[in-house]
Nucleic acid binder design. Structure first.
Length: 257
DNA sequence: ATGTCAATTTTAAATTGA
Protein backbone atom coordinates (compact mmCIF):
# COMPACT_ATOMS: atom_id res chain seq x y z
CA UNK A 1 0.00 0.00 0.00
CA UNK A 2 1.27 3.43 -0.97
CA UNK A 3 0.55 6.56 1.09
CA UNK A 4 1.60 9.93 -0.35
CA UNK A 5 1.65 13.45 1.10
CA UNK A 6 1.47 16.40 -1.28
CA UNK A 7 1.41 20.16 -0.60
CA UNK A 8 -0.46 21.35 -3.70
CA UNK A 9 -0.11 25.14 -3.19
CA UNK A 10 -3.64 25.72 -4.47
CA UNK A 11 -5.79 22.79 -5.62
CA UNK A 12 -7.71 24.87 -8.19
CA UNK A 13 -4.58 26.35 -9.77
CA UNK A 14 -3.02 22.88 -9.79
CA UNK A 15 -6.02 20.75 -10.76
CA UNK A 16 -4.97 19.40 -14.21
CA UNK A 17 -1.44 18.58 -12.99
CA UNK A 18 -2.79 17.06 -9.78
CA UNK A 19 -5.21 14.76 -11.61
CA UNK A 20 -2.48 13.67 -14.04
CA UNK A 21 -0.23 12.81 -11.12
CA UNK A 22 -3.05 10.94 -9.36
CA UNK A 23 -3.76 8.83 -12.48
CA UNK A 24 -0.10 8.09 -13.07
CA UNK A 25 0.94 7.17 -9.52
CA UNK A 26 -2.36 5.74 -8.24
CA UNK A 27 -1.48 5.98 -4.51
CA UNK A 28 -3.86 4.19 -2.16
CA UNK A 29 -4.00 7.07 0.33
CA UNK A 30 -3.22 10.76 -0.29
CA UNK A 31 -2.73 13.51 2.29
CA UNK A 32 -3.08 17.01 0.82
CA UNK A 33 -2.07 20.43 2.15
CA UNK A 34 -2.44 24.06 1.08
CA UNK A 35 -5.71 23.56 -0.78
CA UNK A 36 -6.25 27.37 -0.62
CA UNK A 37 -9.94 26.85 -1.29
CA UNK A 38 -13.19 27.09 0.68
CA UNK A 39 -14.69 23.66 1.39
CA UNK A 40 -17.81 24.36 -0.72
CA UNK A 41 -15.68 25.23 -3.78
CA UNK A 42 -13.41 22.17 -3.68
CA UNK A 43 -13.24 20.10 -6.92
CA UNK A 44 -14.31 16.90 -5.16
CA UNK A 45 -16.19 15.55 -8.22
CA UNK A 46 -12.97 15.49 -10.30
CA UNK A 47 -11.25 13.46 -7.60
CA UNK A 48 -14.21 11.09 -7.21
CA UNK A 49 -14.20 10.51 -10.98
CA UNK A 50 -10.77 8.90 -10.56
CA UNK A 51 -12.08 6.53 -7.88
CA UNK A 52 -11.07 8.45 -4.76
CA UNK A 53 -13.16 9.44 -1.75
CA UNK A 54 -12.06 11.92 0.86
CA UNK A 55 -12.46 13.92 4.01
CA UNK A 56 -11.84 17.62 3.36
CA UNK A 57 -11.09 20.57 5.65
CA UNK A 58 -10.90 23.64 3.42
CA UNK A 59 -10.48 27.34 4.13
CA UNK A 60 -10.96 30.42 1.97
CA UNK A 61 -7.72 31.85 0.63
CA UNK A 62 -5.07 29.80 2.42
CA UNK A 63 -4.35 26.62 4.43
CA UNK A 64 -6.69 23.64 3.85
CA UNK A 65 -6.00 19.88 4.26
CA UNK A 66 -7.57 16.61 3.12
CA UNK A 67 -7.18 12.83 3.18
CA UNK A 68 -8.18 10.78 0.11
CA UNK A 69 -8.38 7.02 -0.40
CA UNK A 70 -8.86 4.95 -3.54
CA UNK A 71 -12.00 2.83 -3.40
CA UNK A 72 -12.70 3.59 0.26
CA UNK A 73 -14.28 6.38 2.29
CA UNK A 74 -11.88 7.56 5.03
CA UNK A 75 -13.67 7.87 8.36
CA UNK A 76 -13.15 11.29 9.95
CA UNK A 77 -11.69 11.21 13.46
CA UNK A 78 -10.80 14.87 14.00
CA UNK A 79 -10.57 18.29 12.32
CA UNK A 80 -8.14 20.70 13.97
CA UNK A 81 -5.64 20.09 16.76
CA UNK A 82 -6.83 20.06 20.37
CA UNK A 83 -5.50 22.60 22.83
CA UNK A 84 -6.57 25.99 21.45
CA UNK A 85 -10.22 26.74 20.69
CA UNK A 86 -9.21 30.12 19.21
CA UNK A 87 -7.12 28.49 16.44
CA UNK A 88 -9.31 28.72 13.33
CA UNK A 89 -6.70 27.67 10.73
CA UNK A 90 -7.46 24.54 8.70
CA UNK A 91 -4.16 22.76 9.27
CA UNK A 92 -5.00 19.33 10.68
CA UNK A 93 -7.34 16.48 9.73
CA UNK A 94 -7.26 12.90 11.00
CA UNK A 95 -9.07 9.83 9.72
CA UNK A 96 -9.24 6.08 9.98
CA UNK A 97 -8.54 4.47 6.63
CA UNK A 98 -7.45 0.98 5.51
CA UNK A 99 -6.84 -0.03 9.13
CA UNK A 100 -4.53 2.94 9.74
CA UNK A 101 -4.88 6.18 11.62
CA UNK A 102 -3.74 8.88 9.18
CA UNK A 103 -3.22 12.60 9.81
CA UNK A 104 -2.70 15.27 7.15
CA UNK A 105 -0.69 18.13 8.66
CA UNK A 106 0.05 21.65 7.42
CA UNK A 107 2.32 22.98 10.12
CA UNK A 108 2.63 26.80 10.31
CA UNK A 109 5.50 28.22 8.26
CA UNK A 110 6.43 30.63 11.05
CA UNK A 111 8.23 33.36 9.07
CA UNK A 112 9.39 35.89 9.91
CA UNK A 113 11.23 34.70 13.03
CA UNK A 114 10.69 36.92 16.06
CA UNK A 115 7.05 37.68 15.29
CA UNK A 116 3.71 36.33 16.46
CA UNK A 117 3.81 33.97 13.47
CA UNK A 118 6.86 32.18 14.82
CA UNK A 119 5.36 31.99 18.32
CA UNK A 120 2.23 30.46 16.79
CA UNK A 121 4.37 27.86 15.02
CA UNK A 122 6.12 26.78 18.22
CA UNK A 123 2.87 26.65 20.20
CA UNK A 124 1.28 24.63 17.39
CA UNK A 125 4.19 22.17 17.52
CA UNK A 126 3.72 21.80 21.29
CA UNK A 127 0.05 21.00 20.74
CA UNK A 128 0.95 18.52 17.99
CA UNK A 129 3.44 16.78 20.30
CA UNK A 130 0.84 16.38 23.02
CA UNK A 131 -1.65 14.96 20.53
CA UNK A 132 0.98 12.67 18.97
CA UNK A 133 1.69 11.21 22.43
CA UNK A 134 -2.02 10.46 22.76
CA UNK A 135 -1.98 8.69 19.40
CA UNK A 136 1.07 6.60 20.33
CA UNK A 137 -0.72 5.33 23.40
CA UNK A 138 -3.32 3.70 21.14
CA UNK A 139 -0.56 1.27 20.05
CA UNK A 140 -1.91 1.18 16.49
CA UNK A 141 -0.39 1.90 13.07
CA UNK A 142 -0.42 5.71 12.79
CA UNK A 143 1.09 7.91 10.05
CA UNK A 144 1.54 11.65 10.59
CA UNK A 145 2.02 12.95 7.05
CA UNK A 146 2.31 16.46 5.72
CA UNK A 147 4.20 19.67 5.19
CA UNK A 148 5.89 20.07 8.57
CA UNK A 149 7.79 23.25 7.62
CA UNK A 150 10.74 21.78 9.52
CA UNK A 151 14.28 21.07 8.22
CA UNK A 152 15.29 18.36 10.72
CA UNK A 153 19.08 18.54 10.19
CA UNK A 154 21.60 20.77 8.39
CA UNK A 155 21.96 18.19 5.60
CA UNK A 156 18.23 18.49 4.86
CA UNK A 157 18.68 21.88 3.16
CA UNK A 158 20.89 23.07 0.29
CA UNK A 159 22.63 25.70 2.45
CA UNK A 160 22.28 26.18 6.17
CA UNK A 161 23.95 29.57 5.81
CA UNK A 162 21.50 30.86 3.21
CA UNK A 163 18.57 29.72 5.37
CA UNK A 164 19.95 30.66 8.79
CA UNK A 165 17.14 33.14 9.44
CA UNK A 166 14.35 30.94 8.11
CA UNK A 167 11.79 29.64 10.62
CA UNK A 168 12.17 26.11 9.20
CA UNK A 169 15.80 25.77 10.40
CA UNK A 170 15.62 27.53 13.79
CA UNK A 171 16.93 25.68 16.87
CA UNK A 172 13.56 26.13 18.61
CA UNK A 173 11.83 24.53 15.59
CA UNK A 174 14.23 21.58 15.59
CA UNK A 175 13.93 21.16 19.35
CA UNK A 176 10.19 20.74 18.97
CA UNK A 177 10.67 18.32 16.06
CA UNK A 178 13.13 16.17 18.02
CA UNK A 179 11.00 16.13 21.15
CA UNK A 180 8.03 14.92 19.12
CA UNK A 181 9.90 12.42 16.95
CA UNK A 182 11.93 11.00 19.84
CA UNK A 183 8.67 10.10 21.56
CA UNK A 184 8.74 6.99 19.36
CA UNK A 185 8.16 8.00 15.73
CA UNK A 186 10.14 6.88 12.65
CA UNK A 187 11.07 9.50 10.02
CA UNK A 188 10.34 7.15 7.12
CA UNK A 189 11.99 9.02 4.25
CA UNK A 190 15.33 9.40 6.04
CA UNK A 191 15.16 5.80 7.29
CA UNK A 192 15.22 4.51 3.70
CA UNK A 193 17.77 7.07 2.42
CA UNK A 194 20.22 7.43 5.32
CA UNK A 195 23.09 8.84 3.23
CA UNK A 196 21.29 10.81 0.50
CA UNK A 197 22.81 14.34 0.60
CA UNK A 198 20.02 15.86 -1.52
CA UNK A 199 16.91 14.34 -0.03
CA UNK A 200 14.61 17.26 -0.82
CA UNK A 201 10.84 17.69 -1.14
CA UNK A 202 10.54 21.48 -1.75
CA UNK A 203 12.25 23.90 -4.11
CA UNK A 204 11.54 27.66 -3.94
CA UNK A 205 10.05 29.23 -7.07
CA UNK A 206 12.62 32.04 -6.97
CA UNK A 207 16.22 32.21 -8.12
CA UNK A 208 16.14 29.06 -10.26
CA UNK A 209 16.23 26.88 -7.15
CA UNK A 210 14.60 23.89 -8.92
CA UNK A 211 16.95 24.05 -11.91
CA UNK A 212 19.96 24.17 -9.57
CA UNK A 213 18.54 21.57 -7.14
CA UNK A 214 18.62 23.98 -4.21
CA UNK A 215 15.97 22.29 -2.09
CA UNK A 216 14.65 21.69 1.40
CA UNK A 217 13.30 18.54 3.08
CA UNK A 218 10.04 19.81 4.60
CA UNK A 219 7.49 17.07 3.89
CA UNK A 220 7.67 14.19 6.34
CA UNK A 221 5.87 10.94 7.16
CA UNK A 222 6.29 9.95 10.80
CA UNK A 223 5.31 6.35 11.59
CA UNK A 224 4.28 4.90 14.93
CA UNK A 225 6.13 1.65 15.86
CA UNK A 226 3.16 -0.40 14.62
CA UNK A 227 3.29 1.40 11.25
CA UNK A 228 7.11 1.35 11.07
CA UNK A 229 7.06 -2.45 11.34
CA UNK A 230 5.21 -2.47 8.03
CA UNK A 231 7.44 0.03 6.16
CA UNK A 232 8.81 -1.32 2.87
CA UNK A 233 9.96 1.83 1.11
CA UNK A 234 9.86 5.62 0.86
CA UNK A 235 10.56 8.18 -1.83
CA UNK A 236 9.85 11.48 -3.59
CA UNK A 237 8.02 11.92 -6.93
CA UNK A 238 10.58 14.46 -8.15
CA UNK A 239 9.21 14.34 -11.69
CA UNK A 240 6.05 16.16 -10.58
CA UNK A 241 8.06 19.22 -9.47
CA UNK A 242 9.45 19.61 -13.00
CA UNK A 243 6.07 19.86 -14.74
CA UNK A 244 4.52 23.09 -16.08
CA UNK A 245 2.58 24.96 -13.39
CA UNK A 246 3.94 22.62 -10.69
CA UNK A 247 3.55 23.11 -6.95
CA UNK A 248 6.76 24.14 -5.19
CA UNK A 249 6.54 20.85 -3.24
CA UNK A 250 6.94 17.31 -4.64
CA UNK A 251 4.75 14.34 -3.60
CA UNK A 252 6.48 12.31 -0.86
CA UNK A 253 5.47 8.73 -0.12
CA UNK A 254 5.84 5.52 1.83
CA UNK A 255 5.09 1.90 0.97
CA UNK A 256 3.50 -0.20 3.73
CA UNK A 257 3.03 -3.96 3.81
C1' DA B 1 15.30 41.13 0.15
C1' DT B 2 14.09 37.88 -3.68
C1' DG B 3 15.55 35.68 -10.93
C1' DT B 4 8.05 33.51 -7.95
C1' DC B 5 3.23 32.11 -7.26
C1' DA B 6 -1.86 31.88 -5.75
C1' DA B 7 -5.88 33.95 -3.77
C1' DT B 8 -8.20 37.94 -2.52
C1' DT B 9 -9.59 42.72 -2.32
C1' DT B 10 -8.52 47.59 -2.13
C1' DT B 11 -10.90 44.31 -8.40
C1' DA B 12 -6.71 45.11 -13.23
C1' DA B 13 -2.84 46.87 -9.01
C1' DA B 14 -1.90 46.17 -4.30
C1' DT B 15 -1.91 42.95 -0.20
C1' DT B 16 -1.24 38.59 2.22
C1' DG B 17 1.02 34.32 2.93
C1' DA B 18 3.91 31.55 1.53
Amino acid sequence: MKLTTYNLNGIRARLPRFLEWLERERPDIVCLQELKCATELLPTADVEALGYQGVWHGQKGFNGVAILARGEQPQLRREGLPGDPDDTHSRYIEAEVAGLIVASIYLPNGNPVGTEKFDYKIRWMERLREHSDTLLREERPVVLAGDWNVVPEDRDVFSIGATAHDAVTQPATRDQWRRLANGGWTDALRAFHPEDPKLYTFWDYTAGCWQRDLGFRLDHLLCSPEAADRLRGAGVDRWARGEEKASDHAPTWIELA
